[in-house]
Design a protein around this nucleic acid. Structure first.
Lengths: 248, 248
DNA sequence: CCCATACTTTGACCCAGATCAAGAGCCCCT
DNA sequence: AGGGGCTCTTGATCTGGGTCAAAGTATGGG
């Protein structure tokens, strides 16, 4: 399976996202084979730290399954999540040795990693890797800037609705809609982690989720399982431009 | 001057930042010459809009002199600044046609631009351009994420101190210290623009600046000219890790 | 089965920063 | 000089979300 180099494979590969996302079908077969040679897998349990901010980071890699968070912490303990890594997201920085933020697994996590030196060598010989990484990084930058609007200007309710929209949009299980067309997914984060993402306290997160439930914007089963009967309504609550994206 | 291709030039060039920052001395002379062939300059007056979010953007470029801001706006008018472009900063996205945010000149502005198609062609033939752009984009991503911590978790006073630190660090005139070692610079933004960067109101910005002045953290001459007698103190006020960076 | 631990909800109260309002300083134009 | 825009400051008041506190709910271990 991992050695299949057909075009179809490089389209559909979930097994090794860097291969699919960073390299795609544009590179020659030999380079793909080289990537396979130097890659390795790492597994983490929920709650485990992948790397601490400031530590030496001698690898780059992407998420195969599970969810990881990037967080920054002040000396007094205030914490802000600065990124959410879902399957196929890339982490690590060619050309720099220290991690800039804590990376933590919030669920069981599998990453596809490359030791930095061989990866950089390969990147130098394979222009498309740098170009693909550039595209991915620009996407992340756009996402980070969009999040700055959420953090700086949105109300607590809008923040929650924005987070739910993003998770709905990106969570793989979103592809499964119920018979009635509802959007259904599981929250991969605790209330505290959501608070850290949104610049709120966990109490406010809890209150706003309750409020959205009372107002019929979402339905909850247990603490984590969310049903969105009307995605357009949720996007309105988030204060987003009403284009609706994939849900239009 | 613009045709000087000595190594010293590519180190010191202020005239065409993309050449210095995106290409540097690693590329061959021919490619540098090609960059010179396709570049052109654009001038904007203070307050003028470079491009509106959503508009077709058929160029990329970098700031030669002056200051521009990237902002996002909600329908109801709430706006968040998501980036500050100082001289040598790059803007634009190879491979995408629509601008993702408003770009506005806040001072008189000169940009060094490249039409997108020839730039992309050149990038495809010159791997170092993509690699250098990747580095620059990763820097911007780190800065954006650092700003997320400011927006999400810092108090108004800390936000102001953080902004002043960043401007002090990046403003070219910082290199000029007064005889006593004070750090001196001009604020390139109105109170309202600072508020939009920090997720505050302009009244709060004004009050916090007054408070910092009263407490002797900064001194003001007129509305815009700032003197910082003790940079370490300012960084403490910003809640930053006390490494001090260039000011240590 | 019961307890410990971690996560979540809800209530009561408070405060940092928003909002509303009034001037003050400044620059440019006529 | 005098006005008309700006930008900026300062005061008074209000409020969204933080803080503190307590109780509810899973889940897993002994």
């Amino acid at each position: 399976m991992l050695n299949d180099r057909s075009p179809a494979f490089s389209q559909d590969c979930n097994e090794c996202p860097i291969r699919h996302r960073a390299v795609c079908a544009r590179c020659e077969t030999d380079e793909l084979a080289r990537l396979d040679e130097i890659k390795y897998y790492r597994r983490f349990e929920a709650g485990q730290t992948v790397i601490w901010s400031g530590d030496r980071m001698d690898f780059v890699g992407s998420v195969v399954s599970g969810i990881a968070t990037l967080t920054q912490t002040m000396e007094d303990g205030r914490t802000q999540m600065v990124g959410l890594l879902l399957p196929s997201d890339f982490v690590g920085r060619p050309g720099r040795n220290a991690a800039a933020y804590d990376v933590t697994a919030t669920t069981d996590l599998v990453m596809c990693c490359f030791r930095k030196t061989p990866f950089e060598d390969l990147m130098n010989r394979t222009p498309h890797i740098a170009q693909r990484l550039l595209e991915m990084t620009l996407d992340e930058l756009d996402a980070a800037r969009e999040w700055m609007l959420v953090l700086g200007r949105k109300t607590a309710r809008e923040k929650i609705a924005s987070l739910l929209s993003i998770i709905a949009r990106r969570d793989a299980s979103i592809n499964l809609r119920s018979a009635t067309g509802d959007v259904v997914f599981d929250l991969p984060l605790t209330r505290e982690a959501m608070a850290d993402y949104l610049g709120l306290t966990l109490e406010t997160v809890s209150r706003q989720i309750s409020a959205l439930r009372k107002d019929g914007v979402i339905a909850l089963e247990g603490k984590r399982h969310v049903t969105v009967p009307d995605m357009t309504r949720l996007l309105e609550e988030a204060g987003d431009d009403a284009d609706g994206g994939v849900f239009a």
